[in-house]
């Protein structure tokens, strides 16, 4: 029997009250792969990540992880299964220092390669600032804490929601170089981005969302910029 894909999203709908944000979205990801989800504002990219992370409940079997349905599990149990979210806007805990923020991520106690020492090897600047308030860091450093906090739960799948948002291009390049190291160590990722260049460079597969539907999907090397423009703007 072939191994099931790491993540299988099948005909996922998502609603905010009466407003429907996703219409029958499907997505497949194998172990160690990276999927880029791109699209305009309001296309449903963050909604898709929040649904996978359990912050929005969905149908029991709309999301399969390692072959098991997780669509109706609460967020805190999904972390235990091995899915960690780096949320849009970072959402650090302002009254905890850098190290405490990282420790919170590790409380779930999943075994694996990541621990405080490894995170500090990955982001040496955080080791220097470990006792500083997380709010005193620069935007790029805060993003490192958010990524480190997610890694502390030793996820098999990392969900990255617009990790380049508001950062200088040179910082974005560094962050993506680090993400490449993380993925290289065997962690799969779903990367939501508006910066198409970064997303395409790291991804194996591309999904383009438009008004809550998948408008285009394919291997990263095979879709052209023209295809993406068409799917992105719906022209």
């Amino acid at each position: 029997m072939p191994e099931p894909p790491l993540l299988g999203v099948a005909a996922l709908d998502a609603h905010y009250g009466d407003f429907q944000a996703l219409f029958g979205v499907s997505l497949t990801l194998s172990r160690g792969e990276v999927a880029a989800v791109i699209g305009a504002n309001g296309a449903g990219k963050s909604t898709l990540l929040n649904a996978i992370a359990g912050l929005i409940r969905s149908r029991h079997d709309a999301i399969l992880f390692e072959g098991e349905p997780i669509g109706d599990l609460p967020a805190n149990r999904i972390v235990g299964r091995g899915i960690a979210l780096v949320p849009e806007g970072r959402r650090l805990f302002p009254s905890l220092n850098v190290e405490e923020n990282l420790l919170i991520g590790g409380q779930i106690g999943r075994p694996g390669r990541w621990n405080l020492g490894r995170i500090y090897e990955l982001f040496p600047v955080l080791a220097e600032r470990r006792r500083q308030a997380s709010t005193s860091l620069s935007g790029g450093q805060q993003q490192m804490v958010a990524i480190g906090r997610a890694l502390m739960s030793n996820p098999a799948l990392l969900l990255c929601d617009e990790i380049s948002l508001g950062l200088a291009p040179i910082i974005v390049r560094d962050i993506y170089a680090t993400l490449r190291q993380i993925v290289g160590a065997g962690t799969a990722a779903v990367v939501v981005e508006q910066d198409i260049g970064q997303a395409l460079a790291i991804a194996d597969r591309v999904y383009c969302l438009q008004e809550g539907r998948v408008a285009l999907e394919g291997r990263a090397g095979e879709v052209t910029r023209a295809d993406i423009s068409a799917a992105y703007f719906g022209v």
Binding site: L55, V79, F93, L96, I104, S153
Partner: peptide
């Protein structure tokens, strides 16, 4: 205790606490 850290995180940002595995 570790619950104290979780409580502080919960006070700061409930949604982030949930997505970090805290049973709010």
């Amino acid at each position: 205790s570790r619950h104290g850290l979780a409580l502080t995180a919960l006070r700061d940002n409930e949604m982030a606490a949930r997505s970090n595995g805290i049973d709010v």
